[in-house]
């Protein structure tokens, strides 16, 4: 497998994203707006209290800032493209090229994330600069390293979920329903709407079993210092296991799906 062609592909996609700067900016606003409300709501809930379930005000605001960062920099949005590829027959053109489809779409997404990460870092830095009293930084270099590792897993799991939904088009055609379902499940069990410790015990237990916590909750917990070194090692190990298992399942679905594919438009 030649790496250079994928590198060239990455550069081409990146140039295309830069060409449509207005579009990228609008996406960023959409991602940020989703989380704008929560710090204000929680600060109102705190009132005169200093902590809630072990979270100080700064922890809570930083928690949502990290989730905003993840939403901009590490959240994949590939399923819509995959749906179009499959139901409109665009996949034909990619299948006959000397490159793997899943790599092709992954590089498409990664090139966008490279651009988005730069913007996310700038936004995160601005939040630190403007609201220093409400922001905190990881307490040790080790936490920072584990946080960066958790960001990788966050992107990887987000991408895997998108691949699942995208591949469902081989069987379902329009995948809007599964995509909405994914959206809800991810929002609830990833800790995006609130730290999972605030959830009812039953939902906490379910979230603890599922891999969605690696999307947002785990990275944010690491960043605000809610996990010990041993807990961080443990979650990275569990995330690795999930990543390996789900990757195999994605490949399995791709092989089964492409066999069903009837190439509309040939």
């Amino acid at each position: 497998m030649s790496i250079s062609k994928y590198w060239q592909l990455n550069k081409t996609f990146l140039q295309r994203h830069i060409a449509y700067r207005a579009r990228v900016s609008i996406w960023i606003i959409a991602d940020v707006a989703n989380f704008l409300v929560f710090p204000f709501v929680w600060l109102a809930v705190y009132g005169s209290r200093e902590t809630l379930a072990g979270y100080a005000k700064a922890d809570m605001v930083t928690y949502y800032m990290v989730i905003m960062f993840i939403s901009v920099a590490c959240t994949s949005h590939i399923s819509r493209h995959m749906k179009d590829d499959i139901i409109k027959g665009n996949l034909n053109a990619i299948l006959v090229q000397p490159m793997r489809y899943l790599f092709f779409r992954t590089i498409h997404e990664v090139s966008y994330r490279i651009l988005a990460t730069g913007i996310a870092i700038a936004l995160f830095g601005a939040a630190f600069f403007l609201f220093p009293a409400y922001m905190r930084f990881p307490s040790s270099p080790a936490s920072l390293i584990f946080f960066l590792l958790s960001l990788f897993f966050s992107f990887y799991f987000s991408h895997l979920m998108q691949l699942f939904v995208g591949l469902s088009s081989f069987w379902l055609g329009d995948n809007t329903g599964p995509d909405r379902l994914r959206h809800i499940v991810e929002k609830v069990f990833s800790g995006e709407i609130a730290p999972l410790v605030f959830f009812p015990p039953l939902l906490q237990s379910i979230a603890g079993i599922l891999p969605f916590q690696f999307l947002s909750y785990v990275p944010a917990q690491i960043f605000v210092g809610q996990l010990t070194m041993q807990e961080m090692r443990h979650v990275v190990f569990i995330a690795s296991m999930w990543a390996a298992g789900l990757s195999v399942f994605v490949l399995f679905l791709w092989r089964r799906g492409v066999r069903r594919y009837d190439g509309v438009g040939i």
Partner: peptide
């Protein structure tokens, strides 16, 4: 190509 302005409005 600013169709994604609708996603922003939703947010």
């Amino acid at each position: 190509r600013i169709d994604n302005v609708n996603d922003t409005l939703v947010s």
